[in-house]
Amino acid sequence: MLELRSITAGHGRGTPAVRDVSLTLEPGTSTGLLGPSGCGKSTLARVAALLHRPDRGTLVLDGTPVTRWRHRAPREQRTAVGVVFQQPRLAADPRLPLHDLIAEPLRACGRRPEVRTRVPELAGRVGLGADLLGRRPHEVSDGQLQRACLARALVLRPRWLVCDEMTAMLDASTAAALVGVVEEYRADTGAGLLAVGHDPVLLERWCDRTVHWSELAGRTP
């Protein structure tokens, strides 16, 4: 279970982007979170991935309340949630070739020996050929880079996936391909999914259930 309980979060002063929002994700299910741009759904997604400390409220990850965030969070908790962002070009270190981009989490977690088997396997899954793996981000298209970013999110076999507008910049075919990869991974591992987006047609096709932001926000417990 990934439980967001009465989360209030924002950036510094002013009205918080997320105010008193609760959302519960069941293991193995997929939830689509639908909302207009700028409504704060990305902030909530970052809270769910332990990347943004909420001002109030609690996040309970598989029964354990999360008390520390970002680099202070225990590695085991952080890596339990894989994240894919909207803009692959900002989400990739411009100096790393795609192979290193995908392998980086394994290296960071001291699981270097798995690089040789895991990276080619995942590259094949997301549809990246060996010739593309040696290129740097500025030498590939947005779609190819997003494929690599999805592979990176899956390389540690997270129990949860958060996809924040994963397909907003992509053409229809690449979008369908990446959704297919996510679903295949979930079928293999039973991982839960939070897919954030603004396209109702896409989310309803993709997810078991779709909730609209306006249903979550502003409800007092």
Binding site: A175, A176, V201
Partner: peptide, 9 residues
Amino acid sequence: ALPEREFTP
């Protein structure tokens, strides 16, 4: 590939 059609890449 559109989600409102077959959704196959």
